[in-house]
Design a protein around this nucleic acid. Structure first.
Ligand SMILES: [Mn+2]
Ligand SMILES: [Mn+2]
Ligand SMILES: [Zn+2]
Ligand SMILES: [Zn+2]
Lengths: 145, 145
DNA sequence: CAACAGTTTAGAATTATTATAATGTAGATT
DNA sequence: AATCTACATTATAATAATTCTAAACTGTTG
C-alpha cells in the first residue's frame, strides 16, 4: 500500500469496507517510510498505545489476515511459538538475531541469487528464501555464579 | 545417533537415563537408514501404533526437547501452527511442498553455497538455510462448481 | 535392598489462534 | 433523513499446541 494517504480509497478498491479499525491499522502498518516486522502482540500493543479506543483482538487477527489475503502482509515463520508478519511482501531474505529475536531484511545486494539445481516434477517453485541466524560473538563468555 | 544399536549405552553417555520410553523413542527416531521430519503428533501416532504401552504426551515433549538439547534433533519452523523436528541435525536446505505440507531435504549438490555479503557487527553467523516453497504446477486449474 | 535423584505421568495451566453469535455500522435505497 | 442490509466488530467460548505441576515411580549408587 502507498505511503501517506487516503486509506479509505485504498481499502475500498480492495473491496474492504473502510471502517475506522481498518483505517487505523492501515495507518500504523503502511503509513511509514520503511517496511517492518511485527507479531500480533506487537501490533495490539502499538494500537493500544496510539489510540484511545481499543480494537478487539479478534478484529486485529481478522484484519491482519484480510490484509495478508489481499497481499499487503506476509507471514514469516521463524520459531514455532510466535508468528511474525512483514509489511515487505516481496520475496526476500532475512537475518534473524537469536539474542534479541529481531528480524532484519536483506536487500538484493546482501545475498547473491541462490542457485537451485534440484527440481521436483509437477511442482513449480513459488519462493526461495534464505534465513541467516546470527548471535552475539562472545566466544569466551564466562559465567560467574 | 548411530544406527542399529545399543541405545542404552548411548543415552548413558549423554547423561540421560535409559528409561524404556527414551529407548523406545530412540529406536523409532534413530534406528533407520534415512533421516526424516516429524511433528510431535506424528511421533505420538507412531508410538501408539508400534507399542502396546503408551507414552504420555508430556514425556514425548520432554524427550524430544532433551534430544534436541543434546543435538540429536533440530526444530524447523515452516508455518506457525505446527513445529517440525528433523533427525538430520546438520545445517541443510529444504523444499517445502505447500500442497502436501511435506518437507524434503536437500543435499549439498541441490543448492550452490549461498554467498552472504552482509554482516552485522558483533554478531556471528550460526546458520544459513534456504527454504524453497513449491506447489503443484497446474496453472490452468479450473474449478467446476 | 534401601535411599535418592532423576523421570514419568495425568491433568491443569498457559498461550496463540480460530469460531460463534449477538450487536453495530457503512453505504445503499427509499 | 429514516430504513435496510450486508458486512464488520466484538466479547466470549472453543481449539490446539505447548508447558507446568506435583505426585507417583524407577534406575542407579552405595
Ligand atoms: Mn495465516
Ligand atoms: Mn523447542
Ligand atoms: Zn522481511
Ligand atoms: Zn531436514
Amino acid at each position: 500500500m502507498a505511503k501517506n494517504c487516503n486509506f479509505i480509497e485504498k481499502l475500498r478498491e480492495l473491496g474492504l469496507r473502510p471502517t475506522k479499525q481498518r483505517v487505523k491499522m492501515c495507518e500504523l502498518l503502511f503509513n511509514r517510510e520503511k517496511t517492518f516486522h511485527f507479531t500480533i502482540n506487537d501490533l495490539v500493543k502499538m494500537i493500544s498505545e496510539e489510540m484511545n479506543e481499543k480494537i478487539s483482538l479478534a478484529t486485529v487477527y481478522n484484519t491482519v489476515h484480510a490484509f495478508e489475503k489481499k497481499g499487503y502482509l506476509k507471514e514469516i515463520s521463524i520459531n514455532s511459538d510466535k508468528s511474525y508478519f512483514d509489511t515487505n511482501t516481496s520475496v526476500h531474505h532475512h537475518f534473524y538475531d537469536e539474542d534479541t529475536n529481531e528480524l532484519i531484511d536483506c536487500d538484493e545486494n546482501d545475498i547473491d541469487p541462490v542457485n537451485i539445481k534440484k527440481s521436483i516434477t509437477g511442482k513449480k517453485i513459488n519462493s526461495v528464501e534464505v534465513l541467516v541466524k546470527v548471535a552475539s560473538d562472545n566466544q569466551n563468555q564466562k559465567k560467574f555464579n
